[in-house]
Computed example of a mutant assay.
Amino acid sequence: MARPPQQTGFQPLDREGLVQRVATLLTKAIVTGQLAPGARLSESVVARELGVSRAPVREAARLLENSGLVTYYANRGFFVRETSAEALNDLYELRMVIEIAAARRVIRLGLDETVDKLAAQIAELHRVADQRADMLTQVEADMQFHRLLCAGSGNPKFLHVFEQIAAETEFSIMVIGRLYDDAHKIAETHEPILDAIRRGDAEAAEAALRYHIGEAQELVTRQFRDLEAARRPT
C-alpha cells in the first residue's frame, strides 16, 4: 500500500515576490524546527503545498544554501543543515568582526539616525519581554538590533554579510531553546553597546560588543557541545 505524501502544513501563495516568500517560509520552518536538522527538503512536496511550480522552490533552496541553512548533495537534493558547535563558534567570531567594524563606522561618521533606531529597537525588545512573546519573536527582535547596526553603518557589505549569517544564528538559538531565563535580560545586554555608541566611545563600543556577542557565543557553543555529546552513541 502506497504511503500518503509527506505534509508540512504550508499554505498556497500568489505569484508576487515568489522566490523570496518561499525562502522566508522555509527559513521560518527550519529555524522553528518544523523542518528538522538533517531532514530532506522535498521540492515537490513544498511546491505542491504552496501551490507553485518546483522552480521557485529550487531557487529559494539555493538562497537558503547561501545562508547556511541547507546543504545540496548531488543526485540527492537539498537537506536541512546539521550544524556543529565548532561551526557556530566560527559564526560568532565573524559576527564580532563585522559588528565591531559597523559600530566604529557609526561613531566615526556620527550617524545619529542609526543611534535613534538602535534605541527604539531596545525599547521593542523590552516590549516583547513584557508581552512574554514566544522564543522566535524574542530572537528576531534581538537580531534586528544587530541588523540595524550593520545597515546603519553606511557600508552595505556589512549588512550583506550579516544577512548571510543571521538565519543560521537564529537557528542555533532556537535549537538550544533559550539564551536567558529572563527575556528582559536580552534587552538589557544591548544597552551598554548603545550607550558607548551614543557617547562616541569606539573602544567602549568594541568592548561592549565583544562581551555581548562573546557571551552568546559561549552559551550557544557550550549548549551545542552538550547536545552533541548527548547524541553520541554510548
Rank of each mutant, 00 (worst) to 15 (best):
S42H: 08
V106E: 01
D201M: 03
V46K: 09
I193R: 11
R15A: 12
G33P: 10
F145K: 08
R76G: 08
A204H: 06
Q217C: 04
E16Y: 04
D130G: 01
Q144G: 05
D195N: 11
S67D: 11
E140Y: 12
A141N: 04
A129V: 03
F162C: 09
M1P: 14
R3Y: 15
A196Q: 05
V139P: 00
E170M: 15
G17K: 13
Y211A: 08
D181G: 09
G33I: 02
N75L: 14
E163T: 05
A230P: 00
A23M: 07
I193W: 02
V70S: 04
V31Q: 11
D116S: 12
Q144P: 02
Q144K: 15
L159V: 04
L25T: 03
T32I: 03
F10Y: 14
H146F: 04
K185C: 08
I197E: 00
F145E: 08
F162H: 10
V19Y: 03
M96G: 04
L111R: 06
M1S: 15
K185I: 04
I176D: 12
E168T: 15
T221C: 11
D226L: 15
R231T: 05
R76V: 14
A129W: 02
Q7S: 14
I100H: 02
G77V: 13
V52F: 13
R81F: 01
A141D: 05
P56T: 10
V106C: 01
I98Q: 06
S53M: 05
R40I: 11
G17S: 13
A119P: 00
I98C: 05
D130L: 00
A166L: 11
A205H: 06
T83D: 15
H184D: 13
R81G: 05
G38I: 08
E49A: 06
D195M: 06
Q7T: 14
H184T: 03
D195I: 01
L209C: 01
V175W: 06
Q20C: 02
S153F: 04
F162M: 06
D116Y: 08
V115N: 00
S84P: 13
I213F: 03
V128A: 06
A47G: 08
H212L: 09
R76S: 14
L35R: 06
R104A: 06
Q20K: 12
L88M: 13
A129E: 07
R81K: 14
E82G: 09
A120E: 10
N89F: 11
V57D: 02
F158W: 09
A60S: 07
A205N: 05
V175F: 06
V57Y: 03
A103R: 02
R3C: 10
V97N: 03
L109I: 00
F79P: 08
A151G: 01
A133Q: 12
T24M: 09
L91M: 09
S42E: 05
Q131K: 01
L148P: 00
A85K: 13
G214S: 09
R3D: 13
